[in-house]
C-alpha cells in the first residue's frame, strides 16, 4: 500500500493554488488534511500527477465571523474549529457534530474543507452544512462562486466543484436567537461513518431535518411538528431510499429516519 509517484508543491498563497489548478486541472489534487486522500493514494485508487498541499496557505486557515455568517477557511483543521472559543454559541450544531467526525487523532489533521469536498454521504460536516443551509466558496482562475450546500453535494463523493476549482471558504449561518439544534448519530462503532446521522434545527413552529448516511448525499427537509410529522417522516424515509450494505439494511436506515427523526425533532422543539 504505497502511493504511485506524484509531484508535490507546498503552496503558501491562494494564488499559487489557483495557478497550479488552472495549469493542471484533471491531473492535480488538492491535499488538505489528507485523512481521506492519503488513504486513497496509499491504496492507489487515485494517481494524480501533482499534489498541491494547501495547509500552509495562511489565507485558508482563518476562522472569522462576518455578520450572520461564520466563515471557516478550507484548511482549518477540525480540531481547530472544535477548540474555537465561540463555536457552541455561534454554530451549535457544528459544535455538537464535530466530536463525531473521525477520531481525536484524525481531527488533529483533517480539515473542514477537505471533509466537505470529499462528500462522503455518511459524513457529519456535509450534513451540518446542508442542514444549516450553508454554502461554500469555490475559486478558480476563471471565477469565484458561492455554491449553496444543496447544489454542492451531487452524489456519492461527487460535488459541483470543477477540476480547476478549489474550495476556499465554508460559510456557516450563525444561529439565530430562538433556534434550537439537535444531532443524533448511529454508527457501528464510535467514530465510524454514520449508518444514519440526523441533524435538526427548530425555530418557533418551523423545523428542518437533515439526514446523512441514507441517500447518496445529505438531504434536508422542512418538517412540521405536529400530527402529520410521522407521515412526513415516512415519506422522507421512502424518498431517501437507502442501500443495503455489509453493515446495515436499507430498511433499517429508513426506520431510523422515521423513529429517531421523530425523537430528535420532538426533543429539539422547545
Amino acid at each position: 500500500m504505497k502511493p504511485a509517484p506524484f509531484d508535490y508543491v507546498r503552496a503558501t498563497t491562494r494564488d499559487e493554488v489557483l495557478t497550479l489548478l488552472a495549469e493542471g486541472s484533471e491531473q492535480v489534487r488538492v491535499l488538505a488534511g489528507g485523512q481521506s486522500l492519503m488513504a486513497v493514494l496509499n491504496m492507489r485508487f487515485a494517481q494524480p500527477g501533482l499534489l498541491v498541499d494547501i495547509t500552509a496557505v495562511e489565507e485558508l486557515r482563518r476562522i472569522e465571523r462576518r455578520g450572520d455568517t461564520l466563515v471557516v477557511g478550507a484548511a482549518v483543521r477540525q480540531a481547530e474549529l472544535l477548540a474555537w472559543p465561540g463555536l457552541a454559541e455561534t454554530v451549535p450544531l457544528v459544535a455538537r457534530a464535530l466530536p463525531w467526525v473521525g477520531h481525536y487523532q484524525t481531527r488533529n489533521r483533517g480539515t473542514i474543507g477537505g471533509s466537505l469536498v470529499h462528500a462522503d454521504p455518511s459524513a457529519e460536516l456535509p450534513l451540518c452544512l446542508a442542514t444549516l443551509g450553508g454554502s461554500v466558496v469555490l475559486e478558480s482562475r476563471r471565477r469565484r462562486r458561492t455554491v449553496p450546500a444543496d447544489d454542492f453535494f451531487q452524489g456519492v463523493l461527487t460535488t459541483a466543484r470543477e477540476p480547476d476549482e478549489v474550495l476556499t471558504e465554508v460559510h456557516l449561518p450563525v444561529a439565530r436567537p430562538g433556534s434550537r439544534f439537535g444531532f443524533r448519530e448511529v454508527a457501528m462503532r464510535h467514530g465510524d461513518f454514520a449508518l444514519v446521522a440526523l441533524a435538526a434545527e427548530v425555530r418557533g413552529d418551523e423545523a428542518w431535518l437533515g439526514v446523512g448516511g441514507v441517500a447518496d448525499r445529505p438531504v434536508v427537509r422542512r418538517m412540521k411538528p405536529g400530527a402529520a410529522l410521522a407521515d412526513d417522516l415516512d415519506a422522507l424515509a421512502w424518498e431517501l431510499g437507502g442501500e443495503d450494505d455489509g453493515h446495515a439494511s436499507a430498511r433499517y436506515r429508513r426506520q431510523l429516519v422515521r423513529e429517531l427523526g421523530y425523537t430528535l425533532l420532538t426533543e429539539t422543539a422547545p
Binding site: F45, G155, V156, L157, F193, D216, E243, G246, H247
Partner: peptide
Amino acid sequence: KVASVGARMLQGASRVVVD
C-alpha cells in the same frame, strides 16, 4: 480491490457513473 474496499459506496458510485 475496489469491491473489497469500497463496498459501502459502490451502489452510489455506480449510479454516479451511469448518471
